[in-house]
Design a protein around this nucleic acid. Structure first.
Lengths: 194, 194
DNA sequence: TAATGCATGTAACGAGTTACATGATTTG
DNA sequence: CAAATCATGTAACTCGTTACATGCATTA
């Protein structure tokens, strides 16, 4: 039950329409809680029905028309309640790790290509986060809100760093000990190439 | 679509009944792909229906009776196909990060207790993984399968290490700048975000 | 006015979660 | 034999995903 609270947070930061929320989810909040526009519309409907948000009076009630929402006091209270709630961390759930385990049983043929591809993707994500950090968190400003947002971003940075390191190491270890790498541990023998 | 493949992997490692699978999911595979017994029974039914697994002939077809499954050639082929498939990593999806972001808007009252609680949980998980590593991966044995399984475990270890570090650091930074630390950057800033 | 893009929405499905139901086996 | 435990299974619900439908506004 996190999506409604993600939306409340986003709406408190700035009242928006469904599509605007979708776009903002693609950028900031979506980096750690993504959502499609269908999810968002569905949830906006629920939140409005429950009296947590309301459409701004200026918005027309017709179909293709833009409709802006703002958070009502009850919505803010609900968000505060949820924020103070305690909830256990969920265990990891990663298909790539599952794949590796499966590869141990049916053969690891070609798995290194997939690992390299992931390594590349995580490196890109990492540099994107580092860009954001450079742009949005200059060392001077320092409110509590800033620190919280920075901490969240740093979680992203550290996670991507973990993946790139783990993938690099795993690739190196799965690499068949051919050529150069093998020479160090195995002194060159007189025999020519196989 | 990962659960069926998790089950196929587990069954290839050792033919089992539904409850046995559930228990093994609570231990090894479940560390990175958990599942309840209801999910597992449902999926076993599907897999049998599709001809990927079969109940061992010794098993009776009555209700409360144990029923052991084994993987058929088609199941092994399907698992091999899936293993070689490529699939993008999913973005992070973590309620705690969302909470921190929300705390920036509605107030961070009491969030540090939750962070400390998570820190403790992650530290426990980390030492559990380290125990497993010590027990199951002595430095001598070294097949490809061993290396794969060890790599998966190391992902768990590194992830928990990341969390403990990030939580420690975040806690330290949110700590009210009491006494010594506060003097340098005294923000005369009031409160109200807007 | 026809096509394009913007904005909101419906429908159907798959996966995960929670609660509960039922049959078999052990054991007190 | 009653109760506890093992083992399999149904049902109902929520959340996320994919595909598609509808209405409005702009402009070529």
């Amino acid at each position: 039950m996190s999506l409604p609270h993600a939306i409340l947070t986003a709406l408190l930061e700035k009242p928006s329409s469904g599509l605007e929320l979708t776009r903002r989810f693609d950028m900031s909040i979506g980096y750690f809680w993504s959502a499609t526009h269908q999810q968002i519309y569905r949830e906006l409907g629920k939140l409005e029905h429950e009296g947590y948000i309301r459409a701004l009076p200026s918005a027309q009630p017709t179909r293709g028309q833009k409709k802006e929402y703002e958070v009502l006091p009850a919505g803010r209270a609900e968000l505060a309640r949820w924020t103070a709630e305690s909830q256990d961390p969920k265990p990891i759930r990663d298909p790539l790790l599952l794949r590796l385990r499966a590869a141990g049983v049916v053969g690891a043929e070609g798995i290194d290509a997939e690992l390299r591809r992931h390594l590349d993707l995580h490196q890109r994500q990492l540099s994107e986060y580092l860009e954001i950090e450079k742009r949005d968190f200059p060392p001077d400003r320092d409110t509590v809100e800033d620190r919280l947002r920075h901490a969240v971003l740093r979680a992203g940075i550290d996670l991507e760093t973990f993946w790139t390191r783990w993938l690099s190491r795993t690739l190196a270890e799965l690499e068949p000990p051919t050529a150069a790498a093998a020479d160090a541990s195995t002194p060159a023998e007189g025999n020519g190439p196989k």
